[in-house]
Design a protein around this nucleic acid. Structure first.
Lengths: 157, 157
DNA sequence: TGATCTCCGATCAATATGGTCGTACTAAGA
DNA sequence: TCTTAGTACGACCATATTGATCGGAGATCA
């Protein structure tokens, strides 16, 4: 189904929350801790903690230890793309197993595979999609990139 | 990682193969059986059989029983989109769990969820991507001859 | 009628994922 | 400097999904 994992979902929610607190007009610059996010969105605390650790290790957010500690965005919300977030959690985008094959490590079908090239094209397009949308776009209600097609008009924003 | 399943991979390979045999210039119109495809691409026979059954049930291919039996495309290769193939196998495209929530069935985070709308936008874009590419488009390398079989009428795009 | 093929349902095994636990480390404040 | 609130980190378990297998029933053609 081309689903993205729950962890990545949580990462998106958390980052959106951090961004909106940090750059909001209520308490700008405030540090946000794990517990606050977990309670706000009903996310299992421990799992969220692990997700945030990964994001921190990947350099998307910076952690502050000790009491009054918490997390802050490492860069501005407009400099963090959805692709970066998802890939931080799930690893490089790979629509099919053979996307990033190296050396002799390839699938059984490789020699006669007729779908690899087109699939890689699709994957590339999806990546562009995710990489052209930033955390900032997700918050403000900023215009999103859209591919015009008569078939789909379902989503309002 | 936004991966598509092996079954869907197999489906794509199989359909591409059937299409290239059926519309190729060597033995146009020939019926292709499961074993032939399985051996050509090193796909487990039984698994491929099940995949083909689903495709047949979904109306993408038609099956012919008995000896000398096999499969044929139900429509022209240009009328079968990648989206249709993948969705036949994996069900409706759902980038996140709450994509197709109905009634009271929604995720814990729903009430404060801040990422649902943007994610649905992305999902929609991906769908358009997949739905704008047909089996015919995938057959770039192989003989892309538009000899129409009696049962399939083609549409140029 | 028998051989060959698809059809279809049930089932098993492997892997990925979601989720939990325990402990160590760090920093602020009494 | 001691305590406490927080993160860091790694090991671990449970469950869901997926990949793969098996066995028999139903068609079809020679």
């Amino acid at each position: 189904m081309l689903k993205i994992s729950k962890k990545a979902d949580y990462a998106l929610m958390a980052l959106q929350h951090i961004a909106s607190v940090q750059f909001g007009d209520v308490t700008p610059g405030r540090v946000v801790n794990t517990k606050e996010i977990a309670e706000e969105y009903n996310i299992p605390l421990e799992l969220l903690a692990k997700v945030l650790q990964v994001l921190s290790k990947q350099g998307l957010i910076e952690s502050h230890n000790g009491p009054k500690g918490g997390y802050l965005l490492a860069r501005s919300a407009r400099q963090i793309t959805i692709a970066q977030i998802i890939e931080s959690i799930e690893g490089p985008l790979a629509i099919t197993d053979c996307s990033h094959e190296k050396d002799g490590d390839f699938c059984m079908q490789r020699e006669h595979c007729n779908i690899r090239t087109p699939l890689l094209k699709i994957q590339d397009s999806i990546y562009q999609l995710l990489n052209n949308m930033t955390l900032g776009d997700m918050m403000g209600g900023t215009p999103l990139i859209t591919i015009q097609s008569p078939s789909a008009q379902g989503v309002e924003r």
